[in-house]
Nucleic acid binder design. Structure first.
Length: 562
RNA sequence: UGGCCCUUGGUGUAACGGUAGCACGACUGACUCUGGAUCAGUUAGUCUAGGUUCAAAUCCUAGAGGGCCAGCCA
């Protein structure tokens, strides 16, 4: 990431600047990005990553990557690996790499400390009973009958919980806070539960695991996090974290909450993304339709585009729904600068140029990127038979349609003026089989010496040299704009778009694309940005993913009704 | 019938008691060998009601609307 990328200020940066100005923490800024390794990172995480790592970079601070791995039943090494890869791909490098599980022993000792101070107790209530005793938001809870268990007994029981003497769920360690608090998190929350499960890092060393609430704040404290940035739903947990920090007498980070990203037509919950994968709605976490970082990378999104998007959406405490068009705008903005222009005919119709000598071919110069002259030029072959886009011809052209039609002349990009003379149709179906045209040899390169103008320039490929490729076009995965807006008892899957993937096997591209490389952005001129698929390409089959389409003002005109 | 947080054009945001600005979208127009890009322009906003003040998007009160919280998930 270049240091020059613009950073807009926000309420969190204001807090930090204020802390810096007043000398809090001696000018030190330490943040962290704390994912749970139970799924792949998505674009919402990208916002959090840009925030935490971006702040550290901006203020000369540090940012750790810490895996919140306190629940062995859901976490896997595969996710740890993917998360590290995605953070790096986005353009960030962590200072410290930690796991909550690194701190299990310390956390255990702190639990013992709370027991000794009479602030925690071992509770024998079942999960159902705990729920019942907890009360509701409207009514106070009742204390557990085990709340006043003597310290010595608590210590003994907790030690035996660790030693594996009890089955899952038999007992918990709970904090003694306030059963009458209007904040339910303070009603004697569970600190430790018994879970005879193998942890992806600590193996079978433990059979009791700390709850997130008992781990997160203290992990931040251990790492001397100055600003602990998290999403809004943890706001109500903050008093609990502060309580632990105070009772334990340890370093106090400041937690600041911001609103998570919501995008139109985009499923963002980890639970739903996991469902999409497990129920085969998509091919995997990296399916190009997924809003995961891995999916977007495979789709052809760029780190720069994603970062630019994150920089403009801002950071607030307001629950908003960002238009996915804004993401696409930043993507196009970046891709426009970097993409190699090529010609590809997605839905070919054959054109025979009757006055072009049979058996002849030639090479024409084409510009690789009009936005960047340093990307040079290339040669594209031209011959008597070419393919053009079926959409670029209308037998009976509507008003404002500028492209090819009988008797009309257009420019073939980088080649010649072409006039349509005759249409050949299938007698039975009426389908257009091919076009017979003539070209003007004097217009080689694309300009007429007599100064004559054409209304349109269309792309094309030469039939004999063209390459047949597979092109995958993606549409939104979800049909409803607000994916969180669901009726009572409504299954969110009913709104999954059944046509989110369209595989096109009849596309033809210019021959130079035989050397296409994974990770390179291409613009199929007049159509969109594409990239080679990183998974399904084989030696004899090129597969291109449509990253995002170009803005199409003709489509707009046509849609309005001419 | 609880507690906490939030509310600025269609959307995302800025304005920190003193001219409501920016971006996206939409719409015009110019230009163009991509109906792309670019450029110029138009559109449209402070949730409501009171109060404080010379002055309120900003402070106070009430209301309306939205979000979160009753996992041995994070």
């Amino acid at each position: 990431m270049t240091e020059q990328e613009p950073v807009r200020s926000d309420f969190i940066r204001e807090i930090i600047e204020n802390d810096l100005a007043t000398g809090k923490h001696g000018g030190r800024v330490q943040t962290r990005f704390p994912p749970e390794p139970n799924g792949y990172l998505h674009v919402g995480h990208a916002k959090a990553i840009c925030l935490n790592f971006g702040i550290a970079r901006q203020y000369g601070g540090k940012c750790n990557l810490r895996f919140d791995d306190t629940n062995p039943t859901k976490e896997e090494t595969e996710y740890v690996d993917s998360i590290m890869e995605d953070v790096r791909w986005l353009g960030f490098e962590w200072d410290g790499l930690y796991y909550a599980s690194d701190y299990f022993e310390q956390l255990y000792q702190w639990a013992v400390q709370l027991i000794e101070a009479g602030k925690a107790f071992v509770c024998d209530l079942t999960a159902d009973q705990v729920r019942e005793f907890r009360g509701s938001p409207m009514e106070a809870g009742r204390p557990s009958p085990f709340r006043d268990r003597p310290v010595g007994e608590n210590l003994d029981l907790f030690r035996r919980m660790r030693a594996g003497e009890f089955p899952d769920g038999a007992r918990t360690l709970r904090a003694k806070v306030d059963m009458a608090s209007p904040n339910i998190n303070l009603r004697d929350p569970v600190l430790y539960r018994i879970l005879h499960a193998t942890h992806h890092r600590t193996g079978d060393a433990w059979c009791i695991y700390p709850m997130y609430d008992f781990a997160h704040g203290q992990c931040d404290s251990i790492e001397q996090i100055t600003h602990s940035i998290c999403t809004l739903e943890f706001e109500i947990h903050r008093p609990l974290y502060d309580w632990f920090i105070r009772e334990l007498g340890i370093f106090a980070p400041r937690q600041i909450e911001f609103a998570r990203l919501n995008l139109t037509y985009t499923v963002m919950s980890k639970r739903k993304l996991l469902q999409l994968v497990q129920e085969n709605f998509v091919s995997g976490w990296d399916d190009p339709r997924m809003p995961t970082i891995a999916g977007m990378r495979r789709r052809g999104y760029t780190p720069e585009g994603l970062r630019a998007f994150c920089a403009t959406i801002g950071v607030t405490k307001f629950n908003s729904l960002t238009d996915v068009a804004l993401l696409e705008h930043h993507l196009r903005d970046d891709l426009n600068r970097r993409a190699l222009r090529v010609m590809a005919v997605l839905d070919p119709i054959k054109v025979v140029i009757d006055n072009y000598p049979e058996g002849q071919s030639e090479e024409l110069d084409a510009i690789n990127n009009p936005e960047d002259a340093s990307m040079g030029t290339r040669k594209v072959p031209f011959s008597r038979e070419i393919y053009i886009e079926r959409d670029d011809f209308r037998e009976d052209p509507p008003k404002k349609f500028f492209r090819l039609a009988p008797g009309r002349e257009v420019r073939l990009r980088y080649a010649y003026f072409l006039r349509c003379e005759r249409v050949v149709k299938d007698e039975a179906t009426g389908e257009i089989k091919e076009l017979h045209c003539t070209y003007d040899p004097a217009t080689r390169g694309g300009n007429a010496p007599d100064g004559r103008k054409v209304q349109a320039t269309i792309h094309w490929v030469s039939v004999p040299q063209s390459l047949a490729v597979e092109v995958r076009d993606y549409d939104r995965l979800y049909l409803k704009e607000d994916t969180n807006d669901l009726g009572e008892n409504e299954d969110w899957r009913t709104h999954i778009n059944p046509k989110s993937l369209i595989v096109n096997t009849s596309a033809r591209v210019e021959p130079g694309l035989a050397q296409a490389r994974i990770g390179t952005a291409y613009q199929f001129e007049r159509q969109g940005y594409y990239c080679l698929d990183s998974v399904d390409v084989t030696r004899d089959r090129l597969v291109f993913n449509r990253t995002v389409g170009l803005k199409d003002s003709w489509a707009k005109i046509e849609k309005r009704g001419v």
